[in-house]
Design a binder for these strands. Structure first.
Length: 637
RNA sequence: GGUCCCUUAGCUCAAUUGGCAGAGCAAUUGACUCUUAAUCAAUAGGUUGAAGGUUCGAUUCCUUCAGGGAUCACCA
């Protein structure tokens, strides 16, 4: 293990931690007496020159030069050059916990330090703090990535964004701007009399939208809940309660595909305004974008997907029928039957064949997606979606086939869906029955209705309209990024332990485990099959008794998953390795489309135990000396 | 979920047709009073993502697995 370089680097630095402690200096000090940030010293150098300041931050570079050492310390604002001069800094002073010149070798790039000294300019003209005292704040025991090339591996950047951001401070400006964007949004809405509310993330129903939800379990209530796929029904309850302008910046969870524009967990600015219709929101959203551009980003022109977009200009507003008419020359208002509309749809030139649609409205939407959507680069408010695809919106008074609804397109990307909310409870109920409860629908299209919300409407909700621009999509536009991972500081990643960390930390864990008197802990131990066989092969654990008994358990899920798959997971407890203590081995999973096949997994599980587990045990110990009994597989539901 | 691609030292990257795994930065030791990707000298550093297979020989070819990326489907 010592021949792994990182472990050597780590040990060298851990040695420095020990040396500091021996000197009487805390390598992880809690107190810091910063008086100035780097940028304020640089900005006001004229008045700061010669003054004594205390700066603090991360050590980013190190240039020893005999009795003189230059380095850069980076705080939240800037990098500041520090000059250590042997005579100025002096020697380590334990009464003040100051590190002296001859102990500078205990510092490493990556450490957090505090420096007190006078502001000066070097001979080459760089503003510098000439240090007369130095305190260690936090010792870093892993080397930072190369300061010049930084992190390039996408996975490393996403998993360890804190490192990428440390090395590329420009990255910090980018995320700061996104934070300012949310601040500007709140300011904008507050100025217009909106109240911000929080709404539940754990919801008993998943109303609004056809997305697939995440399901979770509330133990205290002994029931399943859904992670919010929408917050609108709660905002509407607030409207019914008598608040006229409300909003939430909510978390949304959708258990669907992940790509450059979609993330399972995202945020949306959702508003509800009473006594207004969708036309009010067209103005609101346009003003909001203009305000954010100016206040948070200080400019009006942005490069989105290779196109320059000017938020200073008024946005294009067009109905879906007119947009398709403009692009194809055909007027969907003139189609009388679905067949006619579908015939037209198939005549359109598109790369993929177009499936026949269920209604004229669906056909219109399909034609729009193929021919118009990719061309909507300039900010466009597209209104008048057919009612067939907008079951929860209000129909237009003068043309009831179309909804009082609009979508926002910028750079060919949909950035929000907005409408006059349907507040006729009878109509809503009918609509839901018509669209989501038909027997011919498969389970994926089936969609629950929040009956409690229908009751709200029966008591009455005034005319209401809302907007819902996505935070990440706005951030992508304003910060000119084309990947959603670049605007989410912590994008979702599958858990992964790097091999090097497995070596560094697992061995430590094993040492803990070895050091314990396992017989007296009374705690059972859960291991994966892989870990178990590793422990056996390393002779870290071995049977205590010559009699080994294996108790297999198969847990069968009572309900199929969203995909209709039945699932069973197996684990087993084993007696005979420790006194009064079982070893639990986890990790057998089976899935099947049919419930009956899962019941048959019992036998497959038993074979798995006999072949895989027994083989592993026999491989490392004299098989004849041990009596291995396998109990009947117990099924838990 | 489908298809294609990627994974070599802490970081960034090499390695010819399957033939001794190599460099820069970082690290360690030493020198150095204005450097700034400091410089100079020396030293050390590898589970080539994991497991298996083919081969005299595998970073390279094959299989499985893990993670990541691109793209399609679903969606905002």
């Amino acid at each position: 293990m010592a021949d792994i370089p990182l472990i050597n680097y780590r040990n060298i630095r851990l040695g420095k931690v020990e040396k500091l402690r021996e000197l009487g200096i805390n390598p992880f000090r809690s107190k810091c007496s910063r008086t100035h940030y780097a940028d304020s010293i640089i900005k006001d150098f004229e008045s700061m020159e010669g003054q004594t300041v205390t700066v603090a931050g991360r050590l980013m570079s190190w240039r020893p030069h005999g009795k003189l050492t230059f380095c850069h310390v980076q705080d939240q604002t800037e990098r500041m050059q520090i000059l250590f001069h042997k005579k100025e800094l002096g020697e380590t002073d334990l009464s003040l916990k100051n590190l002296g010149y001859s102990d500078l070798k205990l510092l490493d790039v990556g450490d957090f330090i505090e420096i007190t000294g006078s502001v000066m300019k070097t001979q080459k003209g760089e503003i510098t703090v000439l240090a007369n005292s130095l305190k260690m704040l936090t010792k870093s025991i892993r080397p930072l990535p190369d300061k010049w090339s930084g992190l390039k591996d996408r996975e490393a950047i996403l998993r360890r964004r804190y490192l990428d951001t440390t090395i590329k401070p420009g990255n910090k400006d980018h995320f700061e701007a996104i934070a300012r964007m949310l601040f500007a949004t709140r300011k904008f809405l507050d100025d217009r009399g909106f109240l911000e509310f929080t709404t539940p993330v754990l919801q008993p129903q998943y109303g609004g939208g056809t997305a697939k939800p995440f399901i979770t379990r509330v133990n205290a209530l002994d029931c399943d809940m859904y992670l919010s796929i929408s917050h609108e029904l709660y905002l509407k309850r607030l409207i019914a309660a008598g608040f006229d302008k409300v909003y939430t910046i909510g978390k949304y969870f959708r258990n669907e595909g992940i790509d450059k524009q979609h993330h399972p967990e995202f945020s949306m600015i959702e508003t509800m305004t009473a006594y207004e219709n969708y036309e009010y929101n067209m103005d609101l959203i346009e003003d909001l974008f203009r305000y954010i551009a100016e206040q948070a980003f200080g400019k009006m022109e942005f490069n989105v997907q290779g196109h320059t977009i000017d938020f200073g200009k008024p946005w294009k507003r067009i109905s879906m029928v007119d947009a398709v008419l403009e692009a194809t020359g055909r007027d969907f208002r003139k189609f009388k039957t679905v067949e006619e509309a579908n015939a037209f749809l198939t005549s359109l030139e598109s790369e993929e064949p177009v499936a026949p649609q269920a209604s004229i409205g669906h056909a219109l939407a399909a034609a729009f997606e193929i021919k118009v959507e990719p061309t909507l680069i300039e900010p466009t408010l597209l209104y008048g979606q057919p009612m067939e695809i907008s079951p929860l919106a209000k129909p237009m008074d003068d043309d009831p086939g179309f909804a009082e609804r609009f979508e926002i397109f910028i750079g060919g990307m949909e950035c929000g869906d907005n409408w006059s909310e349907q507040n006729d409870p009878v109509h809503l109920l009918e609509c839901w029955k018509e669209n989501f409860r038909r027997k011919d629908l498969n389970p994926e299209e089936f969609h629950p209705l929040d009956l409690d919300f229908v009751e709200v409407l029966e008591y009455g909700m005034p005319p209401t309209t809302g907007i819902g621009p996505g935070v990440e999509r706005m951030a992508m536009i304003f910060s000119e990024k084309d990947n959603i991972d670049d605007v989410i500081f912590f994008p979702m990643m599958k858990p992964h332990v790097s091999p090097i960390n497995a070596i560094i930390y697992e061995v430590d864990q094993l040492e803990d485990f070895r050091g314990k008197e396992v017989e007296t802990t009374g705690e059972d131990m859960a291991l994966s099959m892989h870990d178990f066989s590793e422990l056996l092969s390393d002779k870290i654990i071995s049977p205590e008794s010559t009699e080994l008994t294996i108790y297999p358990y198969l847990q069968v899920w009572e309900k199929p998953s969203a995909k209709g798959q039945w699932k069973a997971t197996g684990y087993l407890d084993m007696d005979g390795f420790f006194k009064n203590k079982k070893v639990r081995i986890v990790g057998y999973t089976a899935k099947s489309d049919k419930k009956s096949e899962i019941d048959a997994e019992k036998e497959a599980f038993r074979i798995f135990i006999e072949q895989s587990l027994s083989k592993t045990i026999r491989q490392y110990f004299n098989a004849d000396a041990y009596d291995i009994k396998i109990a009947e597989v117990k099924i838990i539901r």
